[in-house]
Simulated assay, not measured.
Amino acid sequence: MSSRTRGVYAISVAAEMASMQIQNLRVYERRGLVDPDRTPGGSRLYSAADVERLVRIRDLLAQGLNLAGIAEVLRLEADNARLREQVRRLRDRD
Rank of each mutant, 00 (worst) to 15 (best):
R44P: 11
D59W: 03
G32T: 05
G69A: 04
D35L: 14
P36G: 07
L60N: 13
P40M: 04
T39A: 12
Y46P: 15
R53T: 13
A68K: 05
N66R: 05
P36I: 00
D59K: 10
R58K: 08
L67I: 14
R58V: 02
S43T: 14
V34F: 02
P40I: 06
V55N: 01
G42P: 10
A48Q: 08
E52V: 10
D35T: 15
S47D: 13
R31Q: 10
R31W: 09
R38V: 08
S43F: 11
R58W: 00
D59Q: 14
E52L: 11
P40V: 07
D59R: 12
L33H: 14
Q63D: 14
I57G: 02
G41S: 08
A68V: 06
R31N: 08
A48M: 13
P40K: 03
D59P: 07
R31T: 05
G69C: 04
P36N: 08
T39I: 13
A48V: 15
I57L: 07
L61R: 14
G32L: 01
R56V: 05
G42I: 01
L54R: 00
R44G: 04
R30H: 11
T39Y: 14
Y46V: 13
L45G: 04
D50P: 15
Q63T: 10
R38H: 11
G41H: 10
E52G: 14
R44K: 07
L60T: 12
R53D: 07
